[in-house]
Design a protein around this nucleic acid. Structure first.
Length: 597
RNA sequence: GCGCCCAUAGCUCAAUUGGAUAGAGCGUUGGUCUACGGAACCAAAGGUUGCAGGUUCAACUCCUGCUGGGCGCGCCA
């Protein structure tokens, strides 16, 4: 993939296919917001604050930056806006910009420009999304999965949101390192070891290892008189007792194979799975260094770091000498800095850990200089219909496996009802994509920080901002190509000119619905940037939903197959590009498309 | 006690970080079916953004104080 190198060239004219100089997969487009922002900022000398217009009657984009500057420099905002407008030369891009309201500058893109941009995007296998000129190295940390315990609903948001952000950043051309920070060390292993030795049922281990390990854990945990024995097993493990180490490794092995099943179903992969145990040997060194530097001090026998803004310290070593998860987090960060030199580290956990990460980050800022951008990307709780954290009827956490099973079962029931004639294997494949997709989409389409109520009916609905709706929208576009009587329809251009529209024709935007669709297509780049800037996957789902809406209007108003050339080819290309962006967008959410449903 | 988060249409949620007339879906009401998948589309109704002040050209957004929820906080993770 060619990387954008410095300046990009815009082709302001249309109507001649020779106007473009795109070779192969070269991705050299500049997004609309970049063009407009750059122009305004050159004239203004300050951020343009370019946004899509709140109301389409004002135009396509608006610059809000003038008013801020006017305020600072005590000028009349409208006068300043007029002055800025007079200095812009964007004749090839938009109609003459207008000044409105308190000092907004409004831009309406020219149809010819939009046509040229989408034509270029249609010939680019990145749909016009540039590759980052300055790639960042980003570490994504997924917290919370514990060895010997089932993955439950509390893990799904971290996994799905982290995976989405990793995918988006990767697509933008950044170097992303995903690291599953599993809980494979801690006091629970004393009880597990004791339970394993005394009460293990090998048949149960074979049938469902995690369930059996959980049973053993609960068994020992309930019996207070065994605490001392469990503790003794833990100490032996910590001292490197070969037998206990071997059993402990068995726990991890059993657990990881179970985790992998879930991650495979979710389509999530990690570059590294470095658990807490990996950092265990480093902990004494971390404490020693922090003490030596005077960052950590002793208080009531524990080693603490006091951080501004919080009365409670971050304890990094207990009075009995044991380390805590804050210690591990600091060791982990140090390792990552040494190993990968990231520009950014993203921690995806639930909101209850805000104080913890605030403290860890504060300590890290004292410890390391320079320090990468540390971001706690936190999320809210998944609630049941009653508004309380989602649990089973018996009050247990819902196992992720059960959740995914139910999602697929419910989706399969719908497919069976709607399309019984499809082969069974096809129906199951559709059910997998729709069921898993629905769960993911429901999660990602929420504003990350708010709690949300989990509802099967809503996430599987065919209307509204849901996975099935988006997947269906994709199928409808694909259906056009099937109907157009061409062969391959899954990837751009494979069906030859007749399938994707003859690329010798440029895309023509004659109908308002075509223009609307094309403008929405051009917003893909800026949407991904917004998602990455603020770690907000729901902006991508909102974009895709809007895209589907614009496509619907186009679909209703603009016949494709029956149109005469060059309209037919133009519209086929527009359909192709829409489908490609839907597919790409869903892929960045970690959701599969299907060709029929 | 200190701290964090939340409160938006009947319900479930948005709102690009201070921008113009607060948007969707469900539900309700009414439309569209011989063009490409009706698992669809279009339209209407529905709001004092919890309350009261404040900041300014502009506030769902920021500040202060309330009310009502959720969560966290020295030896779990």
């Amino acid at each position: 993939m060619a990387r954008v190198s410095g300046k990009t060239r815009l082709s302001p004219t249309v109507g001649h296919s020779t106007s473009y100089c795109y070779s192969g997969s070269m991705s050299a487009m500049q997004s609309v917001t970049e063009i407009l922002s750059a122009a305004v900022e050159r004239a203004l000398g300050a951020p343009a604050l370019l946004r899509p217009c709140a109301n389409p009657q004002f135009g396509d984009y608006q610059a809000n930056g003038v008013m801020a500057v006017a305020k600072q420099t005590k000028q009349n905002p409208r006068t300043l806006a007029e002055k800025i407008v007079s200095q812009l030369s964007l004749d090839n891009v938009c109609e003459p910009p207008t000044v409105a309201g308190a000092g907004f500058i409004n831009f309406t893109l020219r149809g010819e420009f939009v046509g040229a941009q989408v034509t270029a995007a249609a010939r680019d296998d990145r749909h016009g999304v540039p590759v980052a000129m300055k790639p960042k190295t980003v570490v994504v940390d997924y917290c919370g999965v514990n060895v010997a315990k089932p993955m439950h609903i509390g893990h799904i948001r971290s996994t799905i949101i982290g995976d989405c952000l990793a995918r988006v950043l990767r697509f933008q051309g950044h170097r992303v390192i995903t690291d599953n920070h599993i809980g494979d060390w801690g006091t629970q292993f004393g009880m597990l070891l004791l339970g394993w030795k005394r009460n293990r049922n090998d048949d149960a281990i074979h049938a469902d290892p995690i369930a059996e390990l959980l049973r053993l854990y609960k068994l020992i945990n309930e019996r207070e008189e065994l605490r001392a024995e469990a503790k003794a097993e833990l100490v032996k493990l910590q001292q490197g007792d070969p037998e206990n180490l071997a059993i402990w490794r068995k726990f991890i092995e059993l657990s990881e194979s179970e985790f992998t099943k879930i991650y495979d179903r979710l389509g999530v992969r990690f570059d590294h799975t470095l658990g807490e145990s990996f950092y265990n040997p480093m902990l004494p060194g971390v404490v020693a260094e922090l003490r030596q530097r005077g960052i950590a001090t002793e208080s009531d026998g524990a080693i603490c770091v006091f951080v501004a803004g919080s009365k409670a310290p971050l304890i990094i070593q207990k009075a009995d000498g044991a380390f805590l998860y804050g210690t591990t987090d600091l060791a982990t960060l140090k390792y990552r800095l040494d190993q990968w030199h990231p520009d950014e580290v993203i921690y995806v956990t639930d909101g209850r850990q805000q104080l913890h990460f605030q403290q860890v980050f504060a300590v890290a800022r004292q410890w390391f200089q320079p320090i990468p951008d540390l971001r706690h990307v936190w999320f809210g709780t998944i609630l049941g219909e009653d508004g309380k954290p989602l649990k089973t009827r018996s009050g247990d956490l819902i196992k992720l496996e059960d959740l995914l099973n139910e999602a697929e079962e419910r989706a399969l029931a719908v497919v069976n009802a709607k399309n019984p004639e499809l082969p069974e294997e096809t129906r199951k494949q559709i059910a997998r994509a729709v069921g898993i997709g629905a769960v993911k989409y429901a999660d990602l389409s929420q504003s990350r920080t708010t709690d949300y109520i989990f509802s099967w009916d809503k996430m599987l609905a065919m209307n509204g901002n849901t996975a099935p709706y988006m997947q269906y929208a994709y199928v409808r576009v694909q259906s056009i190509f099937r109907k157009a009587d061409v062969g391959r329809v899954t990837s751009r251009g494979d069906g030859g000119p007749a399938a994707s529209g003859d690329a010798a024709y440029n895309i023509i935007l004659a109908h308002p619905s075509e223009l609307d669709l094309a403008k929405q297509i051009l917003r893909f780049t800026e949407t991904l940037q917004a998602v990455a800037d603020d770690d907000k996957p729901n902006w991508l789902t909102a974009y895709l939903y809007d895209l589907a809406g614009k496509f619907s209007a186009f679909y209703d108003n603009c016949p494709v197959i029956q149109s005469a050339e060059p309209t037919r080819s133009s519209r086929l290309q527009l359909c192709r590009l829409t489908a490609d962006i839907m597919k790409r967008g869903l892929n960045l959410l970690g959701i599969d498309v299907i060709e029929q449903m």
